[in-house]
Each structure stands twice: as C-alpha cells, then as structure tokens.
Simulated assay, not measured.
Amino acid sequence: MSDIVNLAVIYYSSTGTGTAIAKEMAEAAEAAGANVRVRKVPELAPQAVIDSNPLWAAHHAATAEVPAPSLDDVAWADAVIFGSPTRFGNVAAQLKQFIDTLSPLWQTNALADKVYSAFTSTGTRHGGHESTLLAIYNSIYHFGGLIAPPGYTDPVKYVDGNPYGTSHHAVFGPDLGSIDDDTRNAARHQAERVVRLGRALKRGNAA
C-alpha cells in the first residue's frame, strides 16, 4: 500500500478569502507529497443576490471552472479539509448542504478513520471563527473521523491565535478576498500537519 496521502480540500467561498486559503493549503500539501483535489461546493444563492455584490459576482465568475465535490472525492480521500466562511457563527449553507449529502458514505462507514480538519474566515475579528470550526467538527464526530486541529504546534499558531483551524479576519475593502502572511503561514502549517498525520495513519493501517 502506498503511503502517499490523498487529500480533498472541499470549501465554499463567496468573495475569495476561502479560495485563497484553499489554494495555499493545496500548494503546501502537494509540496509535502500529497495528491490533492480542490473542490468548491456549488453556489445556492440566487443569481440576483450574487450580482448585487460586485466582489461576489466577480469571484463567482472567476471560480466557475473549479470542480464541485462528489461522493467519490470524499471516498478517495485519506484526509479532508473543509472550509467555510462564517454565517452568523455557523457553517455556510453551501458547505453544509454538501456535508448533508454524505449519508451514503456514512451508512457504510466509508467516512470513518479519515483525518479531517477545517478553516474559516469572517468579516469581523470575533465574528464566529471558533464556533464555525467547532460546528464543522460536530459532523466529524458522527463520521467517526479523526479531527486534526493545528493546535499550538508551531510558532505560527501563536501569531494567528486559533488552535481550532486556520481563520482569517476578512476586512471589507479593496483587499477583500486576499489573505495576509499570518493566515498564509497558518494555512500551510495546518495542511502539512494534516498530510503528516494522514500518512502516519495510512502506515499504521498498512502495518
């Protein structure tokens, strides 16, 4: 059995912050030797609502070619990183809808014994970073998955300050959709940690 980790990064983003984090994580995971699939869950908002926000409309168009996730992507993966912006301190409906479609895999225990982690972004400094990540992890308990939070396992985590997962304060303005070096470093560390733990789990299962 190969110990190359298959990692699925499955996320939702409206104005681009989540896309930037997902891209950073994917690059770090690939550099760490993982096979990576990046998947953006489908948009649920009406087109008129999307068009009312120029940044949302632009990002929606720019990411139209990013594949949507499927059950096969999750079944294939040894590790999954979910990403969602905060919606009133909770998971965005777009990502939650996809998670809710995973019952066929859950019924066969195909979601169990994988490594899971998560990231988020919010429009305010204390706008639900931790509660959103914890809400994502609630589903993982039901999966029988192994949650791999970054914790304070590297100096970069003392800078970004969130042991539950990478999170970014997305400031409204011309730079909305971009991330700073603190978030970038945290994202890379989290992805590398997920790959490392996924590899250790594969080796242990093989043994």
Rank of each mutant, 00 (worst) to 15 (best):
A77M: 09
E192Y: 03
H168Q: 10
R188A: 13
P155Q: 04
G161C: 03
R203L: 15
A207D: 05
Y164H: 13
S139N: 15
A68E: 15
H59C: 08
R184E: 02
T153A: 12
F88W: 09
G123Q: 12
N162K: 00
A110S: 14
F119Q: 07
P42H: 03
T120P: 12
A77Y: 09
T132Y: 12
A135S: 15
S121H: 13
K202Q: 11
E30F: 01
K114H: 08
E65N: 14
L176Q: 13
I179C: 07
A61C: 00
G144C: 08
V36Y: 08
A22T: 12
T86R: 03
P155N: 07
R193W: 11
P42V: 01
S178F: 00
H60D: 09
A45Y: 00
I99V: 15
A48V: 09
K23A: 15
V194E: 08
A118K: 03
I21C: 05
S14N: 10
A68S: 14
T86K: 01
A206V: 04
K96Y: 05
Y141I: 14
A207L: 14
R193C: 01
Q97H: 10
N90A: 08
S2D: 15
Y12M: 00
N90C: 05
V171F: 08
E24A: 15
M1C: 06
L71E: 13
L134H: 01
N35G: 00
S121A: 08
D100E: 14
K96P: 05
F88R: 04
P104R: 06
V115F: 05
L71S: 10
Q94P: 10
L102V: 10
G145W: 06
